[in-house]
Write a protein that binds this DNA or RNA. Structure first.
Lengths: 179, 179
DNA sequence: GTCTATACACAGATAGAC
DNA sequence: GTCTATCTGTGTATAGAC
């Protein structure tokens, strides 16, 4: 059911999902979907939650390098891979792609967990300023954004990912020394 | 005419413009708009061109500081101001906010001029690697993006703008020395 | 549970009178 | 040039038969 919705999203774009098409993807008619979801919004919400669950799984963990620089590089590479593996999912999670869509409380909580995990991660690599996480998210999403928007089939920004991560770590470590 | 379209865009969101509402904004009915524009797409296109013309005007120039660091800081501040002054315009120019909208050749040329100007600017402050402009656009749009999406009324990212610009310049200058 | 039929609301665009 | 009336299409959602 959600599987069919993702298929449509990937083919037509996340904002172009229609109930008719999702239903036809599972051999049904549109009204039958209301047995499983209260509304179209509820479908988006379930997809949003599913997306964040997948996202939480690819956050840095014990298997990653422990030194800040290689750890950040490993992480930005995986983030690129995650976003590019499913652009529709990327748009749903990280872009205001669906006018008027607001995730439910439950889903927002899931998204919040990603942020607290990120904060903990920053402290784990020795970055104590709150600015660290904010600057990092801006840099990383900016890189992926440019890549997907302006060079969807290439690697114009992806090949700069390591450099971006290194720039960030070098800068933040220098700032820490001043504290 | 375009003025009315911008008004609607600011009120309802750039993607939610309707011909009826634009028309009513100038005391007309929807069909009359076709005397001035071939289609709704043509209206978006004209707005897009107008937006980029305004954008070109705020790019760095002779009145800005000439030293790389303060010059980059002045520029990122002005970019924030430009985007936040009109979020609808920001979305039209820098975000894939309107599904299926593709600017005309003429408008794309205007957008291209912004990029060549940026390249020249990078060389003017001593950055010769092509990566410089790409990393800069990613960083700057990422910052604005996070600000508008996650803290529209605050300054959580805007207050980090100077630091981001400094981080970028410091990093790029160090890279130049290695060439 | 799934269907057909349909309500309802919008949108962009066109025809043709004035 | 501007209008009214309308076409055509698309979408979400509901009623009620099976």
């Amino acid at each position: 059911m959600l599987e069919a919705a993702w298929r449509v999203a990937r083919e037509r774009g996340i904002a172009a999902i229609t109930l008719r098409e999702v239903a036809s993807g599972v051999g049904m008619r549109a009204p039958s979907l209301y047995e499983y979801f209260e509304s179209k919004e509820a479908i988006y919400d379930a997809m949003f939650a599913e997306g964040y669950e997948a996202f939480l799984k690819i956050m840095p963990g014990p298997d990653d390098p422990s030194e800040p620089r290689p750890r950040a590089i490993a992480w930005i590479r995986r983030f690129f891979a995650f976003c590019r593996a499913d652009v529709a999912r990327y748009q749903l999670l990280f872009q205001p792609a669906i006018p008027g869509f607001h995730p439910s409380e439950d889903s927002m909580q899931l998204a919040g967990r990603a942020l607290t995990t990120l904060d903990r991660e920053m402290r784990a690599i020795g970055l104590t300023r709150p600015a660290a996480a904010d600057l990092w998210t801006a840099l990383v999403t900016g890189m992926v954004n440019q890549q997907i928007a302006n060079d969807p089939g290439g690697d114009r920004w992806e090949r700069l990912a390591d450099e971006a991560a290194a720039m960030f770590i070098d800068h933040m470590e220098r700032m820490e020394e001043l504290v």
